[in-house]
Amino acid sequence: MQLVIFKLGEEHFAVDTDKILSINDMMPITKVPKAPNYIKGLINLRGSIKSLVDINLLLNINSHKEQNNIIILKVDEEELGITVDEVEEVINIEEQKIQKLETHNSEYYIKGIIDLESRLLTVIDIEKLINQ
């Protein structure tokens, strides 16, 4: 299984590369009046307009760091972007290394945790997070 690791604030997250179309540097964002607060705006990526989702709001993370990257995803046949502080790396990992959470938490979009070189990575199911 291949994962993209990115940072939001001081936390590390990972998403399966199957859903990722591209990773881009930050670009101009056009605000959309009266859009839900989790929609940052729209971007024009090579002539294609995409919605930009503020993943910090969806994950309840207060990050005041500058966001440097946009990850373009395909979720339910729709292409959209999420803004992240920094994309760190792409790794290959065996699925059995993902530790499942035993709690009955409401965060059903969390696939599990990986302990990688003294970093704890939260593996998220991006489709479930976006659709919640």
Rank of each mutant, 00 (worst) to 15 (best):
N131K: 15
K100T: 12
I124E: 04
V123W: 00
I124M: 10
G112L: 08
H104E: 14
K34E: 14
D16I: 13
Q99N: 08
K74P: 01
I55L: 14
Y108Q: 09
G41D: 07
H12F: 15
L120F: 12
D125G: 02
I98Y: 05
L45R: 06
I124W: 13
V84W: 05
Y109S: 06
I5D: 09
Q67F: 05
Q2I: 09
K74H: 03
S106Q: 14
D85T: 06
Q96M: 06
L116F: 15
A35M: 12
L58G: 01
V32D: 04
E78L: 15
M27R: 03
Y108I: 14
L129N: 08
D125N: 15
K111A: 04
S118M: 03
K128L: 14
A35N: 08
I61Q: 08
I91S: 12
V32L: 14
D85Q: 02
I98M: 07
I110R: 07
E94Q: 13
L45H: 11
S22N: 14
L57S: 13
I113S: 02
L120D: 01
K74M: 12
K50L: 15
M1P: 06
K34C: 08
D125S: 01
Y108F: 12
T122C: 11
T83W: 00
I29D: 00
I43T: 01
D16W: 08
N69H: 13
V53H: 02
E94S: 11
E10F: 00
L42H: 01
Q132G: 06
T17P: 00
T30Q: 14
V53K: 06
R46K: 15
E10G: 07
S51M: 10
I91L: 06
N24T: 04
L101G: 05
K40T: 10
L120V: 14
E107C: 07
Y109M: 09
E107H: 12
L121K: 03
R46P: 03
I20F: 03
I20C: 06
I126C: 11
F13T: 09
I23S: 09
E102Q: 11
S48Q: 14
G47L: 07
E10Y: 02
G9Q: 04
L129R: 11
N44Y: 04
K100I: 09
L120I: 15
E127I: 11
A14P: 05
I124L: 07
I130G: 02
T30F: 10
E10A: 08
I98T: 05
I5L: 10
K40V: 03
I39R: 01
N68Y: 10
L42P: 06
L73A: 04
Q96E: 15
K34N: 14
V75E: 03
